[in-house]
């Protein structure tokens, strides 16, 4: 099975480690992984800012780059959600492209959804000593139905226990450009998330989207929490956690 890894722009820039963790997991599942070299951004920043045209250009670019893959997998519910739920909206007035978009949507999966539901990964490479709590990122949860998949996979990590936090499904306040434009409100929402994480008393909060990670880690550190780790689910599953 030929799987195209869509690294996503934030992982590329901020946390390459997560991209390599995803690679490890896909290879552990026996996939032939290709990483198209020219990939950049799925177009979500433009799309969510009202700039459909630039989003469309980037969507076309991505479609071409991953044309030859049986699946497109991204370590992000937000980017996978952009492709699966929003690309069709971008091409509603372009029937010629509609079929291609539909095929791409069918083949695109968020990483944990792919591992749990498509390749049904039984053994995960990683180990983790400690208690973690899981934050459900909005796009993954409400656009793609990613809820049980990461938990089922984490349950297979030796040494790891999961403690649910209150309001795990409530937004962390990231929201892309929202976090910059409305920083006060965004931080206020993040603070509520951090209080819920603290209530779970876990060693680490684990999640599947880099935007939320940066937001939550940023607020945790500012509120004086230097110990609670913020980890991408791929890092934990792959055992690719920074020492």
């Amino acid at each position: 099975m030929r799987v195209g890894l869509f690294v996503t722009c934030l992982v590329d820039l901020m946390r390459p480690r997560i991209g390599f963790a995803a690679l490890t997991l896909l290879e552990a599942a026996g996939c032939e992984v290709v990483v198209p070299e020219t990939q950049t951004c799925c177009g979500q920043p433009g799309y969510n800012s009202g700039d459909r045209r630039s989003a469309r250009v980037l969507a076309r670019k991505l479609m071409t780059e991953f044309e030859a893959c049986d699946y497109v997998v991204a370590p992000s519910g937000s980017c996978a959600g952009m492709i699966r739920t929003h690309y069709p909206d971008l091409f509603t007035d372009d029937p010629a492209e509609a079929e291609r978009v539909k095929r791409l949507c069918e083949r695109t999966r968020e990483l944990t959804d792919f591992l749990a539901n498509v390749v049904k990964l039984e053994r995960v490479p990683g180990t983790f000593e400690g208690k973690v709590t899981y934050h459900d990122s909005c796009s993954g949860l409400r656009e793609l139905g990613v809820k049980t998949q990461p938990r089922a996979l984490l349950a297979r990590v030796p040494g790891l226990t999961l403690e649910e936090m209150p309001e795990a499904e409530v937004c962390c306040g990231f929201g892309g450009a929202f976090a910059l434009k409305f920083g006060d409100i965004s931080s206020h929402i993040a603070e509520r998330k951090c209080a819920n994480i603290a209530a779970a008393g876990a060693d680490a909060v684990v999640l599947g989207d880099l935007g939320c990670m940066l937001n939550i880690e940023g607020r945790l550190r500012r509120r004086g929490d230097t110990t609670t780790r913020v980890l991408h689910v791929a890092e934990v599953l792959a055992g690719n956690v920074e020492g």
Partner: peptide, 22 residues
Amino acid sequence: GGGWTGRRDLPAPQGKTFREMY
């Protein structure tokens, strides 16, 4: 980026991009 760092920090990147490392 005061909107971001007014009431929270920004975790710094690793330093190299995935693209470079791969």
